[in-house]
């Protein structure tokens, strides 16, 4: 059977490649998908839905191509679970630069409109890197004299960055472990499907089994005590870097006479406390501001604009409404004295 199947698979592989290549006018799978993206996008260029669609399609096409490419010379009946696992593993080693499907899955989230820890860090690192080079020579020297404080801050930043990189490396290593576990699960699931009547009959079904296995491997790691500790350490380390960078930016802004985050926070906090006190006073007012707001709110508005439009007016309106109530409450308090 294997002898007979060999030419068929090779022919199929060639036809598949030909199809992809024709679609891409001579390019490989990845370029083929970009050709599709251009075709689909049309006047929707930059559309997030199109990017996700093409991203998903590209991944599946690469999966198909990777598996078939690795198995091109054998008959499907003879593919053992270990051989299929190896094919997927090798396929991913080519497709994902790090050869780590979990890390690849997590990284690819960053261009989905979400901004993960990793992408945030990459942005800050652009700011930090020049400083890092500049301060590395000072790193081991004791701080003293007129520039002592700035040198200490620079050293703290370098240390924080180094710590974050260390925690990030630990996290990446754990993700590699999750990848391996996922492939172990994949092989086990394939073994289960070797029973007559339970075989996998399509590449899509094979892909779905792979996804199930990958999620199980990831979940096992993500629910471990080790992950909890490393994840927390990574997040905390990144927050320390970010906090130090913020402080530095604020100092630079202050030099140009610009208000910084701390100043705004102080104002917001004081305003918040003031509003809470006014609200408490309103509770005792004869006709509360709440009732006034309820009676004047009957205007229908569309969804997002409904939520954002009053937002801009909210504080001013609340302030205006709070005035008479607060005044009445204050008078009431005054009278009771």
């Amino acid at each position: 059977m294997a002898q007979n199947a060999l030419p068929d698979w090779q022919e199929m592989q060639q036809q598949l490649m030909k199809g992809w290549m024709e679609a891409a006018r001579g390019a490989g799978v990845g370029d083929s998908m970009e050709a599709w993206q251009r075709l689909i996008a049309g006047n929707n260029a930059g559309n997030d839905a199109v990017e996700k669609l093409v991203g998903g399609a590209k991944q599946f096409a690469e999966f198909m191509q990777g598996v078939l490419g690795q198995m091109g010379g054998s008959a499907s009946d003879n593919f053992s679970p270990a051989a299929i696992r190896k094919a997927v593993e090798q396929g991913f080693a080519t497709l994902a630069p790090a050869g780590n499907p979990v890390l690849d899955a997590l990284r690819s989230l960053n261009h989905e409109g979400a901004k993960g820890f990793e992408s945030l860090f990459a942005e800050w690192q652009k700011q930090v890197t020049p400083a890092k080079h500049e301060f590395q020579t000072l790193f081991s020297l004791p701080a003293f004299g007129y520039a002592r404080e700035s040198q200490e801050r620079a050293q703290a930043l370098v240390l924080a960055v180094a710590n974050y990189q260390e925690q990030n490396n630990r996290y990446n290593a754990l993700m590699l472990k999750a990848s391996r576990l996922g492939l172990d699960r994949f092989e086990s699931k394939l073994a289960e499907r070797s029973e007559p009547g339970r075989e996998i009959g399509s590449l899509r079904a094979l892909y779905d089994v792979y996804i199930d296995a990958a999620e199980e491997g990831y979940a096992e790691v993500a629910l471990s005590d080790e992950f909890r500790e490393i994840y927390g350490a990574m997040v905390n380390a990144q927050m320390r870097v970010r906090q130090l960078v913020q402080a530095d930016v604020e100092r630079q802004a202050a030099a140009f006479g610009m208000p910084g985050r701390s100043e705004l926070d102080t104002v917001h906090q004081r305003l918040h406390e003031l509003r809470r006190r006014v609200a408490a006073l309103e509770e005792g007012a004869p006709r509360s501001a709440t009732a006034e707001r309820a009676s004047s709110a009957k205007t229908s508005t569309p969804d997002k604009s409904a939520a954002t439009s009053p937002a801009s007016k909210g504080p001013a309106k609340a302030k205006a409404q709070a005035k008479p109530a607060a005044k009445a409450a204050a008078q009431s308090v005054k009278r009771s004295k």
């Binding site: 199947a5 022919e11 199929m12 009946d77 679970p81 299929i84 070797s194 399509s202």
Partner: peptide
């Protein structure tokens, strides 16, 4: 028997 029952044509 292996876990795959893939026919070149159907693939």
């Amino acid at each position: 028997m292996g876990p795959l029952k893939l026919d070149p044509k159907t693939v």
